[in-house]
Design a protein around this nucleic acid. Structure first.
Lengths: 246, 246
DNA sequence: GCTGTACCGTGCGTTACCGCACAGACAGCG
DNA sequence: CGCTGTCTGTGCGGTAACGCACGGTACAGC
């Protein structure tokens, strides 16, 4: 179902003033985000920021021995390319598309220029950055203390919050690499969840049947991050639909 | 040896322009930071930012069941109270003093006011924030993949970088709560390091004998964070010693 | 409808870390 | 000087997750 895309589908863009959005609109380009695409690699100078509409992107750290872990996810509530306005221009981690979709792309110059005007975009981006730090903090603690099953529940829930369907297009292999665990660990945990009737899956598709079931088996981290995100971004998505079609 | 404190001991303050520093100097108050002091608790509106000189502070997340983990450390290279200028005003984690010392304290209004002038303080703070995110990312991945011994090495090295001596005043219990592991796990790992001649310790005091030994047993995370910190904050500490005595 | 590739399930042995319990050692204080 | 509380060492069973190997199965593409 190819919805007509519009800027409001990204919550940050949707919360800008009409004036700001007008200034930026001509520079925002809708781009497809295929599964697996690498938006940036460690140490590489970023050229664009991405405001996802339907895509979901994973901020991902890969260690020397090839092991990896997701440190935060970004969907239509956020933006990829923090390092542009924070001033570092790059990061040691990478960003990869974990659910295909679309995003609005903005050149680094245009982003920096608008950020430095100090208007509502600046405030939004800074608060979003803080929200991202909350995710990272929570991931760090969660990685230390919670079981794979709990983490899987958390991960499914946060991913589900960013899509409009109950079905995620996801192989166990992919999930495992996000959580930084063995593929077999996911097989086992997912098996238990399926047995409990919370999810069902087939080759690369996970369907959530009982959301509250997942919540009950998830660790606290899901709720903590969600609450903090909504606290920090409470004024986002309140602008109504006075949108500029793209 | 009670050195005369001066603002330059904190690298961020030391990198400000003379003009900015002059504006802020009258609001900066040198305060003692005793071991264990809690600078802020989860959800609590911050009243001050702290620029450590000799103290080291841990950003610490405590879970519902009481388990905890450090997500980043802050010493004289940084500042505590990011949430003030990022706009969230609080965070779900807490900040506790893990090595006693001093810090310059600044009221939240004064910090915000200076931040919003958009001068070099703003740029410094934003880049420092990005460096903090690097630490968090690395901690998350490290927690997932590296052994307690490697993590202990990393932690000792980063702590050592923030003090002027070779001796850390630290109980194993405290180290364990920082790393989010059992106290016995530290006993074991520290025992091995002592056997190797890299450290020696007695009741609450850890002395580093062979730094490069620790580096060789540490995980990559230490070097990654260090390199990224120095990249992001390369212009810090270059202002020379035209300081304003406090 | 066949075939090959990707994906998933299962079963080992192994290991790192946990939880608990208790004993010993040191330091500071009256 | 001895007491006391804190800190450290050690042992032991339990367990979650790993690494590896292999076999089974759905689906896509021809």
């Amino acid at each position: 179902m190819p919805l007509p895309h519009n800027l409001n589908q990204n919550h940050l863009l949707g919360a800008l003033t009409a004036e700001e959005l007008e200034r930026m609109a001509e520079h925002l380009k809708l781009v497809p985000m295929p599964l697996g695409e690498v938006l940036y690699e460690p140490g590489e100078q970023l050229q664009h920021a991405y405001f996802p509409t339907t895509a979901i992107v994973s901020l991902h750290y890969v260690m020397e021995n090839g092991a990896s872990a997701e440190t935060a996810g970004v969907g239509n509530e956020g933006v990829i390319g923090i390092a542009l306005f924070m001033g570092g221009n790059t990061t040691p981690s990478s960003a990869v598309v974990k659910t295909a979709g679309h995003a609005y792309r903005l050149g680094r110059r245009e982003l920096k220029a608008e950020f430095e005007r100090g208007g509502s975009l600046q405030h939004l981006l800074l608060r979003y950055t803080q929200a991202l730090m909350t995710q990272m903090t929570q991931t760090a603690a969660c990685n230390r203390h919670h079981s794979v099953e709990k983490q899987l529940c958390r991960w499914l829930l946060t991913t589900l919050d960013r899509v409009s369907t109950r079905e995620l297009v996801m192989t166990q292999e992919l999930v495992a690499s996000m959580l930084g665990v063995r593929r077999e660990g996911i097989t086992e945990a997912a098996g238990k969840l399926q047995e409990a009737g919370y999810i069902s899956y087939r080759r690369g598709h996970i369907t959530v049947l009982d959301r509250s079931g997942l919540e009950s088996r998830s660790c606290e981290c899901y709720a903590v991050v969600k609450a903090e995100m909504s606290r920090l971004l409470s004024d986002v998505r309140t602008r109504g639909d006075a949108s500029i079609a793209a």
